[in-house]
Write a protein that binds this DNA or RNA. Structure first.
Lengths: 182, 182
DNA sequence: TTGTTTGTACAGTTAAAACTGTACGAAAAA
DNA sequence: TTTTTCGTACAGTTTTAACTGTACAAACAA
């Protein structure tokens, strides 16, 4: 096997690993392959470069590069004299992880918190009603306790997100091990 | 509106919020609705109960309850005299989050680490070859430095997973706020 | 043993999403 | 200005995943 083939094979293995795990980012394997391909290029790529390297339509490249950008896995790059949009992989993967974590979970926290607040208010209002049957009163009280549990949980999640966003997570888990024996 | 309708509406809002966010667990909305429905029941449910409550096939209930179980979002319950399988939602959501986090990311870490190790070995072998052209030697060296970066990142991710699994995350982000002002 | 009940494998169908090609607006080049 | 280039919206197609109904094995009951 030629040397350059060996290199390609070694790269391909990594790219495939990325493709198989990119679903954790809510992306489809082909977007992972796109990311992996960009990772091994030492220059930013244009949409046309990607089309050529991956053998997919330019439209696909455009949509998936946008998805990758939204998750901050790739970012735009500039190079003088080049008119086309250029993209390169973000160089701080820890930060990418944190961004992913924030973006994905913050949405969930916000949505749930709003729903919980609204439903809790409705339940409390029900309790004010003196004609509410004892049977239903008990149901409402149980539901309220469940919602309060959810509320505590999402409050924790919110604080967890904060701990990632403001980098305090690195106090608990430093970027590099003290005494690595690798 | 009847009282019980108000209760249903308040519950439905929460269930829908869960359904809309369950994709974070790699599940589809209907599985979220199933989970949400179980959450508001005070007794464990059978597959037939779920079929009735959600108006979906028993086969679907079976497959999605298994998916929910694998993520430790629901667990089997036992009740004397009941032959059918019973399921209820797990009561420690913080732990469910940790389990999710572990299950999902550990796979990724393992897979990537193996790929990186293998490719790194192949690159090192290439470097041993004295006939390797200077041009390719440089490519290999750049790739090696990229793989080492990946390796460090996945090592961090592994330690992060550990910090969740052994509950040290709660040192950084306690389950309950000290002085909560809700 | 034989007859029920229960959960799930499997094949088929329906629904969703990934992907492509065309067409077009915006921006740069001529 | 006109012409060219570039990125993406959109409609249509293909691929994939979700869901259903049937059929059957395992476990229990009679």
């Amino acid at each position: 096997m030629e040397d350059h083939e060996k290199i390609d094979k070694a790269r391909e293995r990594i790219i495939e690993a990325i493709a198989q795990n990119i679903h954790l980012y809510g992306l489809v394997p082909s977007a992972g392959r796109q990311f992996g391909t960009m990772f091994f290029q030492n220059e930013p790529l244009t949409l046309d470069d990607m089309t050529e390297k991956l053998g997919m339509s330019k439209t696909s490249m455009s949509t998936s590069v946008r998805a990758l950008s939204e998750l901050k896995l790739v970012e735009r790059a500039w190079k003088k004299g080049v008119r086309k949009d250029l993209y390169k992989v973000t160089d701080d993967w820890h930060q990418s992880f944190i961004d992913l974590f924030s973006i994905k979970w913050q949405r969930s926290v916000t949505l749930h918190s709003a729903a919980i607040k609204k439903s809790l208010a409705e339940y409390e209002e029900l309790l004010q009603n003196p004609t509410l049957s004892d049977e239903l009163r008990e149901v409402v009280e149980i539901d309220i306790s469940k919602l309060k549990y959810m509320k505590d949980y999402y409050n924790w999640l919110e604080r967890l997100i904060d701990a990632f966003e403001d980098q305090r997570i690195f106090d608990l888990v430093p970027k590099f091990e003290r005494d690595s024996k690798n």
